[in-house]
Computed example of a mutant assay.
Amino acid sequence: MKRTHAETDALIALLDIGDGIPGGQELRRRSYQLLDLAPGSAVVDVGCGSGRAAAEMSALGVTAVGVDPDERMVAVASERWPAVDYRVATAEELPFGDAELRGYRADKVFHVLDDPARAVDEARRVLAPRGRIVLVGQDWDTIVIDSDDPALTRTIVQAAADRIRGPRVVRRSRNLLLDAGFTDVTVEVHTWIFTGSTMVPMLADLAAKARTGEATSDARTETWIADQRARGEQERLFLALPMFVTAATRRA
């Protein structure tokens, strides 16, 4: 579904929060390590968003291209990081020739795809033999939040998962890569823990969307959001987000 500019800008604001937290920075660095790219190697960042990862990889000496289907995202990325090549393209139809790339990275992307297997096949096509693929994502059923209303919290987490095309695709990622003929498949989990106010906007957004979807009442949701905001201000919030990193090598 095509986003409005306002929806894209709101998503960029959330991505900026995630990019700026220490856990986000560490996870990006780990994904670059797993790509194992030599200087000058060509790599694509699929679903590049506002462009930070492609810019960081370029700064490491590789030839990075960021692609995203959202024209507004690509425009923002190009404005922020003008020295990097950003293009409008989808994960299913990448603007590269066969075996052109040494690295493929997709961060928080596969859960929005209609056909992740097709995207993996396209990754295999553009990767050279022994090229590396790294997929980063979360399992939307495993957002862990402490609250005084655990029943509502379960409802909010479930409502968030129900809005996602592939909320549990990270559970399939290893098999998707194996089915496509990739080798050396590994899976890591990195859990982000938040106790302050940083992620309160994300929690408020999840709760508001659950309310809009009539999963809960306005008054109960506002109480839940206020509780999370107060916890964050007192450094008493507890939010755990397990992030899964699946990496593999294209068969020679």
Rank of each mutant, 00 (worst) to 15 (best):
I17M: 08
P39N: 03
A38D: 09
A230F: 09
N175D: 04
G196F: 01
V76D: 00
S147K: 07
W192F: 03
S41Q: 12
D19A: 06
M202P: 08
D184Q: 09
Q234T: 01
A128S: 10
T212P: 08
D218P: 14
T90G: 08
R171P: 11
R132N: 08
R132K: 02
L135T: 01
A64F: 15
A42W: 02
A161L: 00
L34F: 15
L14V: 00
A219Q: 14
C48P: 05
G166Y: 01
T183V: 11
D148P: 02
W140P: 06
L101D: 08
R211S: 00
E122G: 00
L37E: 09
L178D: 08
W224I: 00
V62M: 04
L241F: 10
A91Y: 03
D162N: 04
R229L: 08
L206P: 02
I193S: 12
R229A: 03
R3G: 06
R236W: 03
P82S: 06
R154S: 07
P95D: 01
V65W: 11
R105V: 08
R251T: 14
R105F: 12
V170C: 00
L94Y: 02
S147Y: 02
M199Q: 13
R231G: 01
D9Y: 06
L127Y: 06
P22D: 07
K108Y: 10
A180E: 10
G131H: 14
L60N: 07
G18S: 15
A219L: 09
I193C: 12
W140T: 05
P167H: 04
V189P: 09
R72N: 11
T155S: 01
T63L: 07
M202K: 14
V46T: 07
L60D: 12
Y104W: 09
A55H: 14
M1G: 14
I133R: 04
R72P: 13
A75R: 15
M199H: 11
A75S: 15
A89Y: 02
D162P: 02
A215D: 13
P242Q: 09
